Simulated assay, not measured.
Amino acid sequence: MATRVFFLFTLGYFLSYFYRSANAVLSKDLSQDLGLGPAELGFMTSLFYLAFAAVQLPLGGFLDRMGPRVVTPALLLVAALGSVVFALAPSFPVLALGRALIGVGMAAALMGALKAFSLWFPKNYATVSTLLVGLGATGGLLAATPLALLKEVLGWRGVFLLGALGVVLVALAIYLGVRNTPPGVPWPKAGGAGGLREVWGNGRLLRVAFLALAFAGSFLALQTLWAGAYGYHLGLTAVAVGNLLFLYSGMAVLGFLVSGYLADRLGTARVLFLSALAFALGLLLLLLKLPVPAYALLGFFGAFNILTLTQARELVPSHLVGRGTTLVNLFGIGGTFLLQWGVGVVVGSLGYGAAFGGLLLLLLLALGLYLPLLHSPSQLKN
């Protein structure tokens, strides 16, 4: 049963990663077909993250009370509806609505899995949760070169119609195939509104959350749109851009797979801090117009942002894991919305150099605020 739980939740996260990443390859087609400028493209794509973030806090409460077996499939059906709306959109507003519905629907794909894993795999949570993300992140690989080739056959609308069917099937598989807890393990008491006040009053958790905003936000804003758009800006073909995104996403898969292993052995705080510094170096290489080494660094070390969620679990008791992790994820996904849209605005007025420089400065600020946690690792455990 544990293997089935792991596999089905990983499949759900695979779909979430595909959908969040798809617009990077499709950006040129969407812009041409619907007449979107950089700011509109950035705003529409970022609506996935705005909608995703908007449901995080109520989602945490639902997960702590009802469990991921019910909550995750229910929201996946919303994502399937959004995929159909997106595929049939005749105009920018309808396209934006579809993108937002997909974001709402995918909001529980990762958080539901992390809630389940906190009970199914408590002794090796960091390793298993980052393995989930590493395997699920192969959805980003599907949204790179393979998607560039597939959309030549089906068109971007056909891709989203086919995707909707896949989402429905995975939702049914999760509902019918998993349990909230292992046999004999009781469901933890969820607690009330005081639990929400407790996580918002946790100063260390908020420092981690702000790092998630800058680190996860930059990583996803680039991977799921602007890394692709930047490739087109450099004059590359769709397949060449797909290859660059494949490099980014492939290195991210490797980063996800090793991040939990390193965190379990070297400490979450240390590994998270050093990986964020390496990601900052990748942003610097972007400023120097060196996309290949930049994308490799950004993909591999950017994947370590998932450790912000691992650290959130370390900072709250078991009955608040849903709310603690969704709070940090609220900042990470909300940051992706703000940064993805903001990069579009800055690119449209000042160019890519100013946009990437802004991401770098924000990350360095977040690392400065995170430093006290690095110097007091003994306080990070519950």
Rank of each mutant, 00 (worst) to 15 (best):
A229C: 08
Q311A: 13
A24E: 03
Y19L: 15
R4V: 12
G37L: 10
V55W: 05
L360F: 14
L360K: 12
N180E: 05
P73K: 13
L11E: 13
F9A: 09
G177E: 14
P38S: 13
L330N: 06
L149V: 15
K28R: 15
F48A: 02
S249L: 08
P68K: 08
L11R: 09
T237M: 01
A107H: 00
T308F: 01
G335R: 06
E314R: 09
G267R: 05
L141W: 08
L369S: 05
A74I: 05
F18G: 04
V178P: 04
L135I: 15
A312W: 07
A109M: 09
G155S: 07
A240K: 09
V253K: 03
V208L: 14
L114R: 01
T310S: 11
Y370L: 07
L365D: 07
A269I: 04
F43N: 00
V167H: 08
L110Y: 11
P293V: 03
G368T: 10
A227G: 12
A221Y: 05
L15Y: 14
A116P: 10
L254C: 11
L220Y: 15
R179V: 07
L57Q: 12
L290G: 08
G344L: 05
V345W: 11
A278C: 08
A89G: 08
L338V: 11
M44N: 02
Y232A: 13
F301N: 04
G191A: 02
A252H: 03
T45W: 09
A109H: 09
A137K: 05
L50Y: 08
L165A: 15
F117D: 01
V128G: 00
S376F: 12
A238C: 01
L213M: 14
L119I: 02
M106G: 07
G61C: 02
V241P: 00
A148F: 06
F304Y: 06
A108Q: 02
V71I: 15
P291N: 09
F279E: 12
T310N: 10
R65D: 03
R197E: 13
F9R: 10
G282C: 10
Y295D: 05
L257W: 02
Y295R: 05
L211A: 02
T268Q: 06
R197G: 10
G105M: 03
G195K: 07
V258E: 03
K381I: 05
V5Q: 06
Y370M: 09
L147C: 13
S118N: 02
N23P: 08
V208T: 13
T310Y: 00
P377H: 01
L363Q: 10
G235N: 04
A126D: 00
A116C: 09
T138D: 10
A74L: 14
G348D: 06
F92T: 01
P58D: 07
L11Q: 12
V292S: 06
K189A: 13
P90N: 12
L77D: 10
S31L: 12
E314H: 11
R69F: 07
A126T: 04
L11A: 15
L359T: 05
L234A: 10
A173I: 05
P90F: 11
S16Y: 13
V271P: 02
A296H: 03
